[in-house]
Amino acid sequence: MAPPDDDSVPKPLLPQLSRRAFFKGAGASALSATLAPSAHAADPSPPVLGPEPAPLTLSINGRTVTVQADPATTLAELVRNHLGLTGTKIGCDRGACSACTVWLDGEVAASCMTLAFDARGRKVTTIEGLAKGEALHPVQRAFVENDAMQCGFCTPGMVMSCAALVDRNPKCTLDDVKQAVSGHLCRCGTYPNVFKATLAAAQGGGKAKGNT
């Protein structure tokens, strides 16, 4: 039984009855309270945000969105819970398994260890933003063709790291691929096919940038 959050039907970026809508209402009153006098009432210091939800704006897969989140929200929680983009997986939640890998301004980032506020004004690309419409990124296609997954939980993160490598260095070697996935834990042991798939994608030479 596939878990319902993993289906292939593209999800709306913002669910209809969303946490966002809830926080938007709930946060407004709380926000005005936090913006009240800070310890720096005299000088025009930047506002104190939180601990209640506050608005933040970032680009997700090419779309600029404004979300209400409290400062303790991680980027992984933001994309999954607030934006409904559940392709990004949370494994260890400590930056040690890399299942949560996304691109932050084109560079791989552990979204579970990135506070959502640190992504303000930045370009976030998740696994949902990698394909161009129906056309998969060459690394995604190569993962399918080379059977580079088993249970699939580490796959979105693996794909993000391998796609970043192939986009940056289409002439990457096996050692480069090993280095790129050195932070990824795959308990099914799919590494050999991940290496094969990534090298195949690189040799195919197809560069298809995600819509960042």
Binding site: T34, S45, P46, V48, L49, G50, P51, A54, P71
Partner: peptide
């Protein structure tokens, strides 16, 4: 993780 207040420091002195 407990929520917290967040301030963007503008300078070393401010921080």
């Amino acid at each position: 993780m407990q929520s917290f207040e967040w301030v963007d420091a503008e300078s070393v002195e401010h921080a």
